[in-house]
Structure formats: structure tokens, C-alpha cells
Design a protein around this nucleic acid. Structure first.
Lengths: 244, 244
DNA sequence: TTAGTTATGTGTAAAAAATACGCAATGCAA
DNA sequence: TTGCATTGCGTATTTTTTACACATAACTAA
């Protein structure tokens, strides 16, 4: 085992989207008594790991993402660094750390990352049975300061979506306007008029209609679109917005 | 001296505004040869310090701010964490560290903070003779990765200003519309029409006109305003913005 | 075959916001 | 008292946002 830095970790809040709900990928944390094998507690955490010596923190985040989901080169951005002195000091977290990671420091700084994947895609690596998608509004009990972490990641995502076309990482490669609209509604927490949304998207040059229709639905088939990051990069420009 | 964590520091990019220019507070770094006393190199860095054991990182940033400027309880926000493995490895930085801080790690993680002060106010603590304001577009040679750090802090500031009324931390308590407009222009990097800006500000309930005029100017005296954070907090509300 | 159901595609009108200017008023200075 | 620089107020035009109507396509069930 490589040596890791005992006071520095990365945590990835991984968002997914399927069936009109926004999900977070969590890992079960179950502490059993060494002697009786009785379950002391069960809760969940986001995907995290300590940073190895000589490892860039961004690389550490990529590593965690790959280990837990198999995905590489997808949306992954730092959103906040958590450095409260008491963030791993509550009872359960201490029990957990002392048993599983006795060498880590009592003051762990965690760099929080936000990642986006299409959660309708099965996870390539099925060895992680305790890794589960939870809808964002039905989260289980969470360890460490991860409830706050997820909440801040969601704020980050929401703000980002208002200004950059990042949501497409959460959609399948080919998607319909309705799917895109559902995603925007669930992230931004608003209802959007379907017809106005359609016009808005028509202005986005980087959302490209295909000569192809939706299949297997019990109603009129919708047109499918793809997102082009290239077109976005080429056409984006700044604007003066002062919105309060 | 308290023990500090040898691989963790905070860096504060402190912005000021005066005479229609945006400034950054930098500290001179001058390394002299131990024997000949000859100057090996001179450059500048932003305000930083290692985090002490048992210290919250946000508190460490407040401490740095207070030490270097005397200010407390002013705008101070985390904007990015720098964790490249090579960020303190260039020749000059290594010379500096080996001489001044031989105990620090070769892989230092720095949490970057952005702070805003009214730089027309003299610095209360005058013991820091090597601490100087530089206009943002006339920066000197910078140590570590601080050029990138300042650039990212400015981006952060620019984005933030588009959506939140943070600029007022950079203005005197009482200010005119022109001063406010200059500030917005210099941060956002755009020219704004004076009359339209005036109408925009009139909609901001938290920019409150006083029954008072500017004094000592060689032209028509302008009305003075104050910013009320309270009013802002009470009146702010979210909007759906999709601007690409 | 046909009526029913559901979601899609297109359009138009009104309201709100952003933009582009014109011009008079103020206060000091020459 | 005239000129200069800047402030304060106003209006017309364009662009963007918002609200809402109706016909169409594709499948399902009778």
C-alpha cells in the first residue's frame, strides 16, 4: 500500500439523473463490533479517499471517481474545501476512523469535488455492492459532514447550471427536450414552461437536433438531440448580467 | 511558536479599490545570500501562512487577513484549493523555503481565499513595510503559483459580482454612483452607460440614497449612497437565469 | 377500424428588461 | 458671466421573458 497523507482527503459528490430524479452515489458504512460482530451503526458517505504522497489533489479525485464508478474523463470539479477542526470528531466517525484508519489525523482537510454521470448507465464495476444511488430528496443518514457537503455540492451545481451547459453530463448521449427540461427543473427547483424552454434551447447552438426520433414510447415520438461541447466552446461569450 | 501543519497553508488574495483602479495587496519576498548578503532574487507573493494544528482553515485565513491588514470581519471567501504537486518546486521557491521554512513539506496544499477591502483606507498596521498595493494590470513578478492564484481570484470576484452585491466592500461607506460604476467597470471589464447604470441601481433596494452631497469636487456634487447588507438579505430572491 | 390518451411541435401576443440616446441642471474656475 | 465637467432625469427602441392556444403524431384499447 502506498503511503497517504494522513490529514488530506478528497470527497466526490457524484450526481446522477434518471427517471426525472436527481441522485447521489453513496457508500454504505457499517461498523461491526470486533468481538460480537454486532452492527454498531450503519450510515452512508459520499465517495472519498485520502490523497497519496506525491499525488495532485485533482488526480486523487479522478482516481476516486474511477475506483467507485469506472468512469474517467467526465465532469469533475472542485467546489469547496472543508477544514473545520471538528469535522471528523463526532462519536460515530471517531469509532469508524479508529478501527479502520487508525493512522489518520484528527484534523482531516477534505477537498470537495462535484461529478456528474448518467446514472441510467449501469456501473461498470459491480464489485461495489455497498455503493448505491439515492434520490437527492430521500437521503439516508450520512457520516462526517457529508450532509452539508452534498447540500453545498447541489448549490454549486445549481449555480453552475444557470450559466454553463453542464447538465448534459447527466443525460444520455441522445436525449429529448423533455428529458433535458426535467433535468433543469429538478436541479433548479422550478417549473419551466415547455414551449418557452423549447425556444430557449433552440437558441443554444450547441444542442443539436438529429434526424432521429424517440423509440418505444406510447405517444408521439419526440425528436432527439445531442450536446456538442465543441460548439459550445466555440460560440460562448460573456455578457454583462446584473441580476439581484 | 505554535506548531503548524507542514503541508497546509492558506493564501489570501486581497483586493482593494481606489482611484478607479483595482489593486492587489502583495508582500515583497527578498532572498539574500547568507554569506555575501547579496540579493539572490526579489519578487512578490499574496498574503499567506501555514495553518496551525487545531486551527480551522477559515480561521487561519481570518488570522492572515488580520495580521497583514488589521481588518477583521470583512469579506473573505474561499475560491479554490491549489494542490498541484509541483506548486512549490521551482528553483526560487525551493531556495526560499529551504532557507526560511526548512520544515515545510515539498507538497503544500494551499486554500485560496479572496478578500475585499477599501484600499483608500490606510493600513492600520504600518509595521509591514514590504506590503504594497499593486494595480491588477501592473503586477510585479510573483512567487509560487500566485500569478495563477490572483487570476483565479479575479475570475471568482467577477462572477460573484454579476450575481451578488459584493463590490461594496471595496468602496468607502458612503459613495457616489460614479464611484460604484467605476468599480463595476473595472471588475467586469466593460463600459457601462451611466444613465442605464443609474436606473439599474435605483432598482437595488439595498443601495440607499442619503440626504447628502459629495464635497470638494470641481463640478456638480453628486448624491451619496450607502449599501445595506440587511436590506439585501431581506429582499434577495432567486431567479431562473439561463445565459449562454 | 376508430375513438381515446398522452405528449410533441409551432405560433402569437403582452409584459418586462435591456439598450441607446437627448438635454437640462449644478457647481466650480477662468 | 461664461465655459467646463459631471450629475440627474427622461424617452424611444430593441430584445428578452412570460403566458397561453391549438393542431399533430403515435400508440392503446375497445
Amino acid at each position: 500500500m502506498d503511503a497517504f497523507i494522513n490529514n488530506l482527503s478528497v470527497d466526490c459528490v457524484i450526481f446522477g439523473f434518471s427517471n426525472k430524479t436527481l441522485n447521489v452515489l453513496l457508500t454504505k458504512r457499517e461498523l461491526k463490533d470486533s468481538e460480537t460482530a454486532e452492527v454498531v451503526f450503519t450510515d452512508y458517505t459520499v465517495q472519498g479517499h485520502h490523497v497519496y504522497k506525491g499525488e495532485n489533489i485533482n488526480d486523487a479525485a479522478s482516481r476516486v471517481l474511477k475506483d467507485k464508478t469506472g468512469f474517467e474523463n467526465i465532469f469533475l470539479e472542485q467546489f469547496y474545501t472543508f477544514g473545520e477542526t471538528d469535522r471528523v470528531l463526532n462519536e460515530r466517525d471517531q469509532l469508524w476512523i479508529k478501527k479502520k484508519y487508525p493512522m489518520v489525523s484528527d484534523h482531516v482537510i477534505s477537498v470537495g469535488y462535484c461529478s456528474l454521470v448518467d446514472s441510467s448507465v449501469l456501473m461498470p464495476d459491480t464489485s461495489h455492492q455497498d455503493t448505491v444511488w439515492f434520490p437527492i430528496d430521500e437521503l439516508p443518514e450520512l457520516g462526517f459532514d457529508h450532509a452539508k457537503m452534498i447540500s453545498m455540492a447541489l448549490d454549486f451545481l445549481r449555480n453552475k447550471l444557470r450559466h454553463e451547459p453542464i447538465g448534459f453530463e447527466l443525460l444520455p448521449e441522445k436525449f429529448t427536450l423533455s428529458e433535458m427540461q426535467s433535468l433543469y427543473e429538478v436541479i433548479l427547483g422550478t417549473k419551466i414552461d415547455r414551449r418557452n424552454f423549447s425556444k430557449k434551447v433552440a437558441q443554444m447552438k450547441f444542442v443539436i437536433p438529429l434526424n432521429e426520433k424517440q423509440k418505444g414510447v406510447a405517444h408521439r415520438a419526440a425528436q432527439v438531440f445531442i450536446f456538442s461541447k465543441d460548439v459550445y466552446e466555440r460560440t460562448k461569450k460573456d455578457k454583462l448580467i446584473l441580476s439581484y
